[in-house]
Deep mutational scan, measured.
Amino acid sequence: KEFRPGDKVVLPPYGVGVVAGIAQRSVSGVSRAYYQVDFPGSRSKAYVPVEAPHSVGLRKAL
């Protein structure tokens, strides 16, 4: 896996977040693995496909 729990990442347009782990989510009846990204200071979460994280701009924070 490219990202691990605890990694600081950037996800446009949300900003800097932390990978909380990998979650299985069902979309249109198909279960897939997603990185769960939490954003400190907020209750917001984002789910990014493990198979294509760069397709939505997910990258490691510098």
Rank of each mutant, 00 (worst) to 15 (best):
A46K: 10
Y34N: 02
S28Y: 05
F39K: 00
P5R: 10
P53C: 11
Q24I: 15
A20S: 12
R32P: 03
V37M: 01
A33E: 15
Q24N: 12
G6E: 02
R32E: 10
F39E: 02
P12E: 09
A61S: 08
A23V: 15
L62W: 05
Y47P: 00
H54A: 11
Q24D: 08
E51Y: 06
F3R: 01
Q24W: 13
K1L: 15
Y34A: 01
R25Y: 09
P40L: 10
G57Q: 06
V30G: 06
G57C: 11
P40N: 07
Y47T: 02
P12L: 07
A23K: 13
A33P: 10
P5G: 03
G29D: 04
P40S: 06
V56Y: 07
G57I: 05
V56Q: 08
P12I: 05
V56S: 14
D38Q: 11
A46D: 02
S31I: 14
P5A: 11
G21P: 00
A61Y: 14
K8N: 07
Y14I: 04
S28K: 13
V19T: 00
G6H: 02
K8C: 14
L11I: 05
F39Y: 02
A20W: 04
G29S: 03
A52K: 08
P49D: 10
Q24C: 15
Q36R: 07
D7H: 02
P49F: 04
S31D: 09
E2L: 11
V9D: 00
K45L: 08
G17F: 01
R32Y: 08
V10E: 08
F39D: 01
P12M: 07
S42Y: 09
A23G: 05
R32C: 10
P49M: 04
G17Q: 00
A52M: 07
K1R: 13
Y14G: 01
R32I: 11
S26C: 14
G29T: 02
P13E: 06
V48H: 15
R4I: 13
Y47W: 11
A46R: 10
A52L: 06
L58S: 03
Y35K: 00
G15M: 03
S42R: 12
G21Q: 08
A61K: 06
V27L: 08
P49K: 02
Y47V: 02
V56G: 10
K1V: 15
Q36M: 13
V48E: 01
Y35N: 03
A33S: 12
G17E: 00
R59N: 06
P13G: 15
Q36A: 08
S26Y: 10
P5S: 07
G6K: 02
G6D: 02
S44E: 13
R4D: 04
Q24Y: 13
D38N: 11
A23E: 12
V48K: 00
A33H: 11
A46F: 08
S42G: 11
A20M: 12
D7V: 04
K1I: 14
G21E: 05
S55C: 15
G57R: 06
I22M: 04
S55Y: 08
R25C: 15
P53D: 06
F39Q: 00
R59L: 07
L62N: 14
A61T: 06
K45H: 12
R4K: 12
P12W: 12
V19D: 01
V48Q: 00
A46I: 12
Y14V: 02
A61N: 06
Y47R: 00
K1G: 14
P12Q: 06
E51I: 07
A23Q: 12
D38K: 09
P5K: 12
V56A: 14
K1Y: 15
G41L: 11
Q36S: 04
A61W: 13
P40D: 08
K1H: 14
K60P: 15
F3G: 01
S28M: 11
K60M: 10
E2K: 09
A20P: 00
P13K: 09
S26G: 05
P53S: 14
I22V: 08
G17M: 01
L11N: 00
V9L: 03
S44M: 15
Y47Q: 03
R32A: 15
V30L: 10
V37N: 01
H54L: 08
V27R: 06
H54W: 09
A61D: 10
V56H: 14
V50F: 05
H54T: 08
G41I: 09
S44F: 15
G21N: 07
Y35E: 05
S42N: 10
Q36W: 06
P13L: 08
V19H: 00
P49Q: 05
V37T: 00
A33N: 11
P53E: 04
E2R: 09
D38T: 12
V27W: 06
V37H: 01
F39A: 00
Q24L: 13
G57L: 03
D38F: 13
D7Y: 03
A46G: 04
E51C: 07
A20V: 14
Y47C: 07
K45W: 06
G29I: 01
A20H: 08
S42C: 15
L62K: 10
Y14A: 02
V37L: 06
G17H: 04
V19C: 06
R25H: 09
D38I: 13
V27I: 12
V18K: 05
D7R: 02
G21F: 04
V19I: 15
R4N: 13
S31H: 09
P53K: 04
V30R: 09
R4W: 10
D7A: 04
F39G: 00
V10N: 05
Y35L: 06
L62T: 14
S55L: 13
V16K: 07
V48D: 02
P53R: 05
G21H: 06
L58F: 03
P13A: 06
V16C: 15
P40R: 05
R43C: 15
V18D: 01
P13D: 05
G21A: 11
G29E: 03
G29P: 00
V48Y: 03
V27F: 08
S31Q: 11
F39C: 15
R25S: 07
A20K: 11
A33T: 10
S28R: 12
S26K: 12
V48I: 08
P53Q: 06
G21M: 09
K1A: 14
Y14L: 07
G6P: 02
K45R: 13
G17C: 04
Q24T: 13
L11W: 06
K45P: 15
V19E: 01
P12N: 05
R32D: 06
G57T: 03
P12H: 09
D7T: 08
V19F: 04
F3N: 01
Y34L: 01
G21S: 09
K8F: 13
G41P: 14
S31R: 11
R32K: 13
V56L: 06
R32H: 10
P53L: 05
G17R: 00
F3C: 15
S26W: 14
P53A: 15
V50Y: 05
R43Q: 13
S44Y: 13
R4M: 15
G57P: 03
V30I: 10
V10A: 04
F3H: 07
A46N: 02
K60N: 11
V48T: 01
G15K: 03
V50T: 05
G29Y: 00
R4P: 09
V16I: 12
V19K: 00
R25T: 08
P40K: 07
S26N: 13
G29N: 04
F39W: 02
K60G: 15
S28E: 14
I22F: 04
Q24S: 10
R43Y: 11
K1P: 14
Y35H: 02
Y34K: 01
P40I: 10
L58Q: 03
V9N: 00
I22T: 05
G57H: 05
R59F: 04
K60S: 09
P49C: 10
G17D: 01
I22N: 01
V10I: 13
R32Q: 10
R25E: 04
V37E: 02
V9Q: 00
P40H: 09
S55F: 07
V30D: 07
P49T: 04
V27Q: 08
L11K: 00
Y34W: 05
G6T: 02
K8Y: 13
V50G: 01
V9S: 01
V10K: 04
E51A: 08
G57V: 04
P53Y: 07
K45Q: 11
Y35V: 04
F3D: 02
P53G: 09
V9Y: 05
E2H: 11
Y47D: 02
D38Y: 14
D7C: 11
G6Q: 02
L58I: 09
R59I: 12
K60A: 10
P40A: 09
F39L: 04
F3Q: 01
R25V: 13
A61L: 15
R59T: 12
R59W: 02
G6F: 03
D7G: 02
F39S: 00
V37S: 01
Y35S: 00
S26T: 15
V48L: 04
F3E: 00
F39M: 03
L11S: 02
P5V: 14
P13R: 08
R32M: 11
K60I: 09
K45T: 15
P53F: 06
V19M: 04
P5Q: 09
G57M: 04
